[in-house]
Simulated scan of single mutants.
Amino acid sequence: MTLFELLTQGTECLERAGSPDAGNDAKLLLLEAFELDMTHFLLNRMQALSEDEATKAREEKYREWIGSRAKRVPLQQILGSQEFMGMEFFVNEHVLIPRQDTETLVELVLEREKNTQKRVLDLCAGSGCIGISLAVLGGFCYVAEADLSEEALGVTRKNAENLAKKTGTRIDSFHGDLFDAIPDGTEAFDILVSNPPYIPTKVIAGLEPEVRDHEPMMALDGTEDGLLFYRRIAKEAGSVLAPGAAVYLEIGYDQGEAVSELLRKQGFTEVEVHKDLAGNDRVVCGRFVG
C-alpha cells in the first residue's frame, strides 16, 4: 500500500458518500494522519508504506477519519480545529464551527473600538472565537464569555487558555441564558458582541448534513422567524451596558432591516448594517444611549 493508493481509496469513499469536496478532504486527512506536508507527500506518495506498528496506526487513523467524513461529520470536528482571524481554535460537536463571515464582525470592532480599557461581553460565545480574537488582536482589558451550554463554555475556556493566556486580558466565562448569565453587581460593559442563533426553524431541515446533523442545534435555531434572540438582546441589553456602549450583532443575509428596526425600537442610535466580503448583509451595529 502506498500513500497515493490510500488517498485514492479515501477520495473514492468520500465521493460515494456525496462529500462536496472529497479529494481535498481526503488529502487533508491523509496529511494530518501521517504528519506530512505536501512536499513530503509528493516525494513519497508512490513508495510502499512501512509495516511497522506506528505506520499501521496512522493508516488505521486515516481510515477511521475517512469513515467519519463519509458520515458527513465536518472536517473541522474530525481534526479538532478551525482557523479564525489567523489563529487555530479548538472545536468539537458542542460549538458552532467558526466561519469566515464572522470575521467581518471582529474586524469591524477592531477598526472602530480603539480604547483597550473597554469591557467586552461576548454573548452566545460558543468556541469563543469572537471574544478571544478581540482579546488577542484588540488588547481589550476584559472579556466576558457567556453561553447557555456548559459544554460550549468548556471549549471557550480551552481556547482562552491556548490562545490568550499570554495577553493582558482577563477572560471570564459565565453559564446562563443570555444576560441571566452575568452575575449581579458586574461592572457594566462597553462593547457587546454576539453571533446568536438566527436560522429560522423551518430552514434547518434543508441545510447541509454537516451543519444540520453535526453542529449544535441550540447554536443554529433562531425559532420561527430567526429573530428571537435579537428581540431579547435589543430589549434586555440595557441591563448590562454602560451608556454609549456599542453593540455588534452577526445576522443572516436577509435580516439586516428587521434587526436594525428591533434595535431602533429599543432606543439604540447610530444603527447600521455592514456587509461581508461576499456583499451580503452580515453585521448590525448600534449604540446604547442609556
Results as ranks from 00 to 15, higher is better:
D25Q: 00
D221R: 05
C141Y: 11
V271A: 06
V193M: 03
A22P: 00
P98Q: 03
K275P: 00
E236L: 08
E32F: 06
L49E: 07
R45V: 15
T11H: 06
V136K: 13
D101Q: 04
E64G: 06
E250K: 07
T2Q: 02
G67T: 00
V155D: 06
T201N: 01
P20V: 02
G290A: 09
E103D: 01
A205L: 09
V136C: 12
L7G: 07
D25T: 15
L163F: 00
F34G: 03
G131T: 02
L192N: 12
A205G: 09
S127D: 11
V109D: 08
C129R: 12
Y248C: 10
E35S: 11
L228K: 13
L153H: 09
F229R: 05
R232M: 06
M38W: 07
V289K: 11
A258H: 09
G86E: 05
I233Y: 01
T169H: 05
E12N: 14
E208W: 04
K71A: 15
T201S: 15
R282C: 05
V95P: 12
L36M: 04
E187V: 13
D52R: 15
P200F: 10
A33S: 15
F84G: 01
V289L: 12
T8P: 04
L7V: 02
R58Q: 14
A219L: 13
F268A: 10
E111Q: 12
A125E: 09
E224W: 07
T269S: 15
C285I: 07
V203S: 10
L121H: 09
N24F: 14
E12S: 10
V193Y: 11
E107S: 00
G256P: 00
L96T: 09
T169W: 02
G244L: 08
D180V: 15
H274T: 02
F41K: 06
R264S: 03
E161A: 15
D225Y: 15
G128E: 12
G131W: 12
W65N: 12
I78P: 00
R63I: 08
S68G: 04
